[in-house]
Amino acid sequence: MSAPMAGTDHLSHIEHVILVLSGKGGVGKSTVATQIALGLRHAGKKVGLLDLDLCGPSIPRMFNLQNQDIHQCPEGWLPVFVDKDQHLSVMSIAFLLEDANDAIVWRGPKKTAMIKQFLSDVVWRDLEYLVIDTPPGTSDEHISVVESLKSYNPDGAVLVTTPQAVAVGDVRRELTFCKKTHIPVIGIIENMSGFVCPHCTECTNIFSKGGGEALAKQFHVPFLGCIPLDPKLTHCLEQGKNFLEVYNDTPTHKALDAVIERLIRIDRDLP
């Protein structure tokens, strides 16, 4: 990443910025963002995870960080660390709320102001990767983050979809968003693809199958793989456990590994 300014610019020290996007809600953006962050850290990288879902922040809960607070330092806001080594840090609006049930009832301009503040005031220090989780859609949050990141040349976006047509339809529009805003598409992930019954090992495609892969082909963007619908993954996220450590020899783990491997390669692809 190029550094447009010196001084208190907290983003210019970050090597790679990756957005996780989807036009569709509930397809697993936050899940993918957390697994990517954990996987990169596991590979020895210093990682930050920024949660830009202001009305429905999920990231703190997925790391079991619900009762943490943000601390202020002279340079800005300190993110919350997930691990003792301080190699993985998280920032989310959930850390700023008094009561977890409080609704953030904000219109666009206020959300935009908050996002600008998150991007300028968080003291990330020297990160190798900043992963950014977003809410569904192509509106205020997305326009704001893309505009603010423009001068930093973000590496691009990982697009998450589920296989069925209702989801793929929205992700098609997200591809147009990326094109119009000049965000490179790192690739498409097909999540919740196939469910293997734990009782009889029969595979049922509860949310259909193949839609994400077909979309990637049709639009000539890389396909990053299928992640199965795996109750063990939901369970880990519910408990704030690290799935990649707990279930390390499962098809889901392998699928996630392939995605993370691709993101590590971004580093090697550099001249």
Binding site: G23, R107, G108, P109, K111, T112, T138, S139, D140, H142, I143, G169, R172, R173, E174, L175, T176, F177, K180, T181
Partner: peptide
Amino acid sequence: GPDDAVIWRGPKKN
């Protein structure tokens, strides 16, 4: 068409 994205901020949606 199916590729048209609606890239609108709040006031326009409202």
